[in-house]
């Protein structure tokens, strides 16, 4: 089982923005983004060093303008009984994913994880729909949230559940201007996602 002793991504990115080290991901370059998944970069993304994200619950985080602005986050293998995020040094119990969940359950799992880990005043999900990811039947949906600084954030979640594992990619950016700016790039990257060996 993968160790997920980290901080909720949305919280962490603000800390990371001051001290993160980045590696440019060249367009067209196929790179691993966690356990058994590769994607091809499209657009001007940079990957945040693995050392700095080792405690986020994510397997890879990419950004264009800095992680406090926008980020692509990859969760390559959430297994039954595991949370998506973990808040360190806290007794907050986060939702866990379970085998057999329906896609509406997964949407609510993501929604609840973000809400609880980040003590969000507001989050709503929308447009849950079938979506192929990693060549498998999956799902996609959007979310809108207001964070503790009262900034309106929009997110896109694309994922699939198969083989006892939940795999997801999230794209998150401020609703005003930034989300639309790199949305097409994020979707294009999701479309290139492949399971290793497939």
């Amino acid at each position: 089982m993968k160790i997920r002793n980290g901080m909720a991504t949305l919280l962490l990115v603000f800390v990371l923005s001051a001290c993160a080290t980045y590696s440019k991901v060249d367009t067209g370059q196929r790179v691993p983004v966690g356990e058994g998944i590769t994607v091809t970069a499209v657009g001007g993304w940079a990957s945040i060093s693995h050392q700095l994200i080792s405690n986020t619950g994510a397997d890879a985080i990419w950004t264009v303008d800095g992680p406090s602005i926008n980020h692509l986050t990859f969760y390559s293998a959430i297994r039954s009984g595991e949370p998506m995020l973990v808040v360190p040094n806290s007794d907050v119990e986060l939702p866990v994913w379970r085998t057999g969940m329906t896609e509406p359950d997964v949407m609510e799992f993501v929604e609840g994880s973000l809400a609880k880990a980040n003590k969000l005043p507001f989050i709503e999900t929308e447009n849950l729909r079938p979506h192929t990811f990693l060549g498998q039947p999956g799902f996609a949906f959007e979310f809108n949230l207001v964070n503790q600084k009262q900034l309106e954030i929009r997110g896109l979640v694309i994922g699939t559940q198969a083989g006892g594992v939940l795999r997801m990619m999230t794209y998150t950016a401020p609703k005003l201007h930034f989300f639309a700016k790199d949305e097409a790039s994020a979707r294009a990257i999701a479309a290139t996602a492949q399971l290793t060996g497939s």
Partner: peptide
């Protein structure tokens, strides 16, 4: 419903 497409599937 916001999840209509998924439910229809």
């Amino acid at each position: 419903a916001s999840d209509r497409l998924m439910i229809q599937s």
